[in-house]
């Protein structure tokens, strides 16, 4: 199994840490992982993205132009990465602030209104964990316990009291992700 993912959105949405938790979940299950953030001028204007690769085998290039999965969390990222999903691949997006919804007909599209849900839950910081939960529902890559272990590894110890609320957010994501269109 090799899964090549782009996670893209605004800085501060937890894009990079979501990628890191996903990578650590993979490490917990003995996988090879790579995490390549955009840095420097690409970050200006408040956008952030990270390329995550999870694989049973040694990873070749950490830098990619096309992806199995795009997790898209703002309009700029939709404009940039919708076309980068491989045919038959997966696009997950949060509808919040999206003015042009995905138009591809050769990929699987799911929507997760995580920003709205995070506000309802009274914990906007868990936004990225809701999205992660939604992704894991569709892809079923890892056991939930590996993800929680990954979460523990990613968070500094002073934030470990936040793990239950993050776990709850992951569960909420599993519940609320909605299929928009699928091709396979």
């Amino acid at each position: 199994m090799t899964e090549e993912i782009i996670i893209a959105g605004f800085g501060g949405q937890g894009v990079l840490s979501m990628g890191k938790i996903l990578c650590y979940s993979g490490v917990m299950e003995g996988q090879e992982v790579s995490w390549m953030p955009a840095y420097g001028p690409e970050m200006r204007g408040g956008t952030a993205n990270v390329t995550v690769i999870l694989s049973d085998n040694k990873i070749s290039s950490p830098i990619l132009d096309t992806f199995d999965t795009a997790i898209i969390l703002n309009q700029q990222s939709m404009d940039k990465f919708e076309s980068a999903v491989k045919p038959g691949g997966l696009l997950i997006y949060d509808g919040n602030g999206i003015t042009r919804h995905p138009e591809r007909e050769d990929i699987n599209i799911y929507r997760i209104d995580a920003a709205e849900e995070a506000t309802k839950m009274g914990s906007t910081k868990t936004f990225n964990m809701i999205v992660l939960g939604g992704y894991l529902k569709v892809k079923k890559l890892y056991k939930l316990e590996s993800v929680i272990k990954g979460l523990k590894k990613s968070l500094p110890e002073r934030y470990h009291h936040m793990i239950p609320v993050n776990e709850k957010a992951i569960h909420r994501g599993l519940e609320i992700i909605k299929e928009v269109a699928t091709v396979n």
Binding site: M36, P37, P62
Partner: peptide
């Protein structure tokens, strides 16, 4: 280089 410096692997 900057890519290897910035990327995470195990």
């Amino acid at each position: 280089d900057g890519a290897l410096g910035q990327m995470m692997e195990k």
